[in-house]
Each structure stands twice: as structure tokens, then as C-alpha cells.
Design a protein around this nucleic acid. Structure first.
Lengths: 364, 364
DNA sequence: CTGAAAGCGCTTACAG
DNA sequence: CTGAAAGCGCTTACAG
């Protein structure tokens, strides 16, 4: 340590600079030490502090998909809330990592992070990875995304919001409402993404109340559903159009491509429910390109309340997650686990979203 | 250390697990130690390692504005390139920090980061903050943004790109080209943002070659420039419209608002050059709202090559930064500084951007 | 091929 | 009010 070299005492400096027992010392001594420390540009060594105290005071925030506004806001909110209660955080953007998830986890454990928050977890991040944290006693809480063993998930629930949006569309006079989604109906219920289940359930509930619903794949849709039977114009109908899930991983702009195809057909649906605002913008870009008037010819809705949707020219109906609420809950659970590792935790904890009705969702 | 407790030797474990002198040991010993370590879930303590070796192997990446795609890509590229050469990184999103920049810097110094990369530095981050790193011998390299004392800046250069874009617009037959920008002409040359200078210079160069240019504030523009004098229709003219710089900080969607006002005028410019693709989208949103046809009535151009601009419906001319090149250069300089702290460094190092011509920039 | 020794920079009781 | 002692978990020469 430098401070005492330059002056007098030894770990007196530690007391004074550490702040804990600073009051026990004479003002003169304290001042002297502080001055010297400043002059010598002294900074405590974090590694040494961690080693002694045994605590790092660090929570890792592992996140995916910085491309989505709502996801960014969640990460930011997590970080800010952690800071507010005095924790430091270590932000890990999984998009920045070229594979080697194992090495990352080793690093985090080696850094002695005390807890882990994972937002919008993706399939690369598996049960066995969470397990590594679990083995060394580091609690993990998931924020939006999917469930994993040995971790609690706090997530927004799209069910009610999608139901309300669908209701709204039918109420506005739309007859045929299309929900575009990636394909998971071929998997067993338990293997379908949570969010997928929520969207489909909410949609179905509304459709059943107003009319009927079907679920079809993309090819089947174009082969059998179009052109629409014109028999009963007053019949209300919901259609879930499943695109190949790989399209979402591999193909750039999957919804845009689908809509280009759709909008070149002679008969259109009245409204399209998109998975989120980013995809809603893809639909709108396709509509503009094809000369389809929004919302006159087709209404579009999204999810997430992106900035882009706030322009009246796009202005689609959407839903907003309770970001503060989700983050607060997740951190609360993590803190509980930190204090009492054995606390029984729910597997999932859902928080509803708020619907935002905008003009592009309704007939003008 | 756990491994030896369970088995035999003591710092033999360190050698074997550390990997350095592992070859010196008998296979049997090695295997035994490794097995035990695995069984006991041993992870070296990063703090302790750092303390001993005196090196952290960590570079901090401090970044702003995750809302802009190009900025995100730069941060990601920096991180990946650092990893490739064996460094760990610590990502700091300044948007996540509620003030308290001093505390952040203390933390970083305490973490013994070996170097700092700051991308898209903003005004809150001042010379004196950089100085703190400088005092303790941590080199700082800036990536895009502004210059600071004791730091080298590696940045894209917009000059040539803006000149080429302006040239292109004039060549396409546009007469009156408007560049929208925030106001800095009232400051002395040295205090204007680098990027501002580049944009204005590139624009002026092109205008001087094709005709003339003027620079006006927003109010002055609406009071004096409109409606356009119709005297000489073949005269080519560039106008730099300066909005109040505070608008960009305080007002949401400054370009959108300006364009709403502009598009309600009886006579329009032929083309509008926006600061980046995000603002270009604001202009487009305003155009759609006002029934102004893009690019027929007004052509729009941006900068940064965002995803949104790749849809044909928006498809504005833009420019793409050489992100790989910028990052490689920045890291190269940082490494030099790490090896030889006294290496003389240039104050700034500019890397040109590549122009991408798209339909919305030209008359159809 | 393996172990004893020293020390990285700090903090926390404890004894003056 | 202040200092001597012990130890956090590791690594790196060095000596067997």
C-alpha cells in the first residue's frame, strides 16, 4: 500500500480510506492520509478487496437481442435498479460472444459474481449452463424468455394483451384477422415457447367469443385459404398463420417476405397481428411497397411499443410491457435467493402487459 | 485451495490447473488433480489471479447510444476483436448509469482494466475524466465521436460520403437540396463537433461545384427562404438548415417535427439530407403523414445503413461506415499504447465511409 | 517430477 | 487514537 509508505501508519490507511472506522482517527491524521492518497493517486485494488471480503458485490446481467427496443429497456432498467440498491453489475451481451459459452460461464464464476440475471434467454443457453451456476451456489433469475431448470422466470404475459387486441380488431368491424407467428404447433405443448402459447391462447379466446379460428402453415394458407370464401360476409374468423420457425432464425425479414407474398393476392385479410413492433414495421414496409393502404385496406398491430410505432404514419396498435414491474420483481427474487438460498421459488411469475390502441389498428 | 486438500500436493495443483507447467507432471498425478478439481467444482478466483499476476487482461468498452444500429455494431465488433486477440472486456453502457461518472471511473481503475475504448463519446464525458485514466497510466482510445485530451480518436469521416451523396442528388436533377443539421455555426470552428464540420464541408464542396450554398437557422429559413424564388429554375442550390442543437437533446423526434412543418409549405425542396438513417426515417414518417411522395416529391438520404433503410418502401441513399476497419485501427493503437506507453499517437485518425445509392435518393 | 517459501494488496478482529 | 498479526486464494521462481 502506498499511502503509508509516504507517511506514517500502515493499515490505518485502510481504515481511513475504507471509510468504516474513519471516525476513530484524529482529524489531522485522517487529513494527512487522505491528502497523500490523493496525491499518489491511490485506488484500492478490487481483486484484493474481493479476496478479503469474500464478496464481489457484482450481479451479472446476461442479455440477448439488443436489437429490440423493449429488450434494451429491460436491460437498462435491471442495471439501474441494481445500482440503486448498491450492487455493481457486469453486463454481458451474448451477441458479442463468438460461441464459447462455457468459457464465459467460467469467467463469471471466476469473477465471483453473486447472482445472475438472464434476460430473453435463447436456446443456446441450456439447462446445463444454468446448472453450472447452480452447482457453485450462484442463484439465477430469468427475465422474459423461457424457463430453465434451477431458475425462476419472471416474464411479461402476452395472453391478455393479445386477447384484448384481437377483441378490439373484431369490435372495429374487421372480419378476418390474421395472426402471423413462427411454427411450433407441431411440438408437444410443453416444448412450445411460452410466448407462443400466450399469443395463441389469447388469440383463440377472443376468436371463440366472436366466431371461429383455425391454424395453418404458410403453404397451406396460400393453397387452401385464398381466395377467401365469400359465402358469409358477417362471419368473424381468426387465422393463425405459422411460418417455418427456421425462417425467423435464418431468413432476414421473414414477415416482410410473407407480406409481399400476401399483398400480391387478390383478397386480403382485414387485419394482421404481428409478433412485435419490429415485425409490424416489416408488414408496413411491404404494404407501402405493394400499394396496400394502412389501415384502410389492412390494419396492422404489433407488440412492445417501439419508438417507430409512435409516428402517426405508422401508428399501429401495440402493447407495452410493465418493464419496471418485471425488473423489480426479478431483482426482488434474486435478492431473496441471495439472502436465503433455500427459499422456495415459483417456477414462473407472469406480469400482464398494457394495450395501446392506435389508429392504424382501426378502420378510419 | 481445494484440490490439494482432497488429494496430495499443494501448488502442484496450481501448475496443473493453471496449464503452464502441466507437462512436467506425471500423467497419473495430473489426472488425479484434474478429477478432484472437477469433482469439487474448482474455479480459480479471478481477483486472486489478478493480484498475483498484476494484470487483469481486461479492456473496458465504454459506450453510449445503444439506440443507433451502427453504434451497436461498432461496440460488438470491438468486443469480438478484443476476444480474438485474447483480451477480456468489460462493457459499460453509459445509458445505464444514473450520473455518477466519477464512481464509474473509480470502479474501472479499481478493477485494474488495462485499457479503455470509448465509443461515441458524449459531452458529459470530459477531458478531466479521461485525465483520471491518464494519471494512473491506463491508455484511452476513442472510437467515433469527439476528441479529448490524452486520447487518440479513430473515427469515420463523413466528408467524402456527404459530398458524394450531394453530388449524386444534383446529378439526378435535384435543384434545391436541403441538409438538416443541428446548430453549431455560432461556435468557433474548434468548438464545433467534428462530425458537424465533416457534413457541412462535404456538402459545401459539392454545392460549390454545382452552384451555391447558404446556411440558415430554422426560423430564418421559414421566414425568408420560402416560398422559393422561381427566377432561375436551372440554378442549383444547397441549403443547410440548422435546428437548435437543444432540440436534439430535449425534443423527441426533432427532424420529424421540422418536416411536418416543412411539408405543410406550398413549395418543397427536392431533396433532404438527414444526419443519419434514424432521422431519415423521421422525415419519411412525416412525409407519409403529409401525403408527400418519396422520392417523387422529395428525396431523402440518411447515413449509417440501418436495417430500416433496406426495405424498398423506404430505401433511401445512405453511407456505411467501415466498422471493421475503424475497430481494428482503434484496437491496434490501444495495443501499441499497452506495449509502449510512450508511443507518440496521432490526435485523430479518420477512415472514410462508403456511399450506398438507393432509389429513394433519385427521381424515379 | 514435486513441494516449501514468499508475496500480490487488501481488511478485519485484536491488542495496545 | 493507532499498529502488529493473520489470512483471503492464488502464482512464480527456486530448491530439491
Amino acid at each position: 500500500m502506498v499511502a503509508e509508505q509516504a507517511e506514517v501508519s500502515r493499515e490505518t490507511a485502510s481504515h481511513i480510506l475504507g471509510g468504516k472506522r474513519a471516525d476513530r482517527y484524529k482529524d489531522s491524521t485522517r487529513k494527512r492520509v487522505e491528502d497523500i492518497a490523493r496525491a499518489l493517486n491511490y485506488r484500492p485494488h478490487r481483486g484484493a478487496q474481493m479476496m478479503k471480503s469474500g464478496r464481489s458485490n457484482i450481479i451479472a446481467i446476461i442479455h440477448f437481442g439488443a436489437g429490440i427496443e423493449a429488450a434494451r429497456k429491460i436491460n437498462q432498467t435491471l442495471a439501474q435498479q441494481l445500482q440503486k440498491i448498491g450492487y455493481d453489475y457486469l453486463a454481458i451481451d451474448m451477441n458479442w460472444h463468438d460461441g464459447n459459452l462455457d468459457r464465459l460461464i467460467e469467467t463469471l464464476i471466476g469473477s465471483r459474481v453473486e447472482g445472475v440475471l438472464i434476460s430473453h434467454i435463447q436456446t443456446i443457453f441450456k439447462d446445463e449452463h444454468i446448472e453450472k451456476f447452480y452447482h457453485v451456489g450462484i442463484p439465477v433469475v430469468l427475465v422474459n424468455g423461457e424457463t430453465r431448470r434451477h431458475a425462476t422466470l419472471v416474464s411479461s404475459d402476452a395472453t391478455d394483451a393479445i386477447e384484448a387486441i384481437t377483441d378490439h380488431l373484431f369490435t372495429c368491424g374487421h372480419r378476418r384477422v390474421l395472426q402471423i407467428i413462427d411454427r411450433f404447433s407441431h411440438l408437444a405443448e410443453a416444448h412450445r415457447p411460452l410466448n407462443w402459447n400466450q399469443r395463441v391462447t389469447g388469440f383463440q379466446r377472443s376468436c371463440e367469443r366472436h366466431g371461429s379460428w383455425t391454424i395453418v402453415g404458410e403453404e397451406e394458407f396460400f393453397a387452401k385459404c385464398l381466395p377467401w370464401p365469400t359465402a358469409s360476409p358477417e362471419k368473424l374468423e381468426g387465422i393463425i398463420l405459422e411460418q417455418n420457425a427456421e425462417d425467423y432464425a435464418i431468413v432476414d425479414k421473414p414477415v416482410y417476405r410473407l407480406c409481399l407474398r400476401l399483398f400480391s393476392q387478390p383478397s386480403l385479410p382485414d387485419a394482421i397481428i404481428c409478433r412485435n413492433d419490429m415485425y409490424a414495421m416489416e408488414a408496413i414496409a411491404a404494404a407501402l411497397e405493394c400499394g396496400v393502404a394502412i389501415p384502410h385496406d389492412v390494419a396492422i398491430t404489433g407488440y412492445d411499443n417501439d419508438r417507430m410505432g409512435t409516428f402517426p404514419a405508422f401508428g399501429f396498435t401495440t402493447a407495452e410491457q410493465d418493464i419496471e414491474g418485471i425488473c423489480a420483481k426479478a431483482i426482488h427474487l434474486l435478492l431473496q435467493l441471495l439472502k436465503a438460498p433455500q427459499t422456495p421459488m415459483p417456477e414462473t411469475l407472469f406480469i400482464p402487459s398494457r394495450v395501446i390502441i392506435r389508429n392504424a389498428g382501426s378502420r378510419p
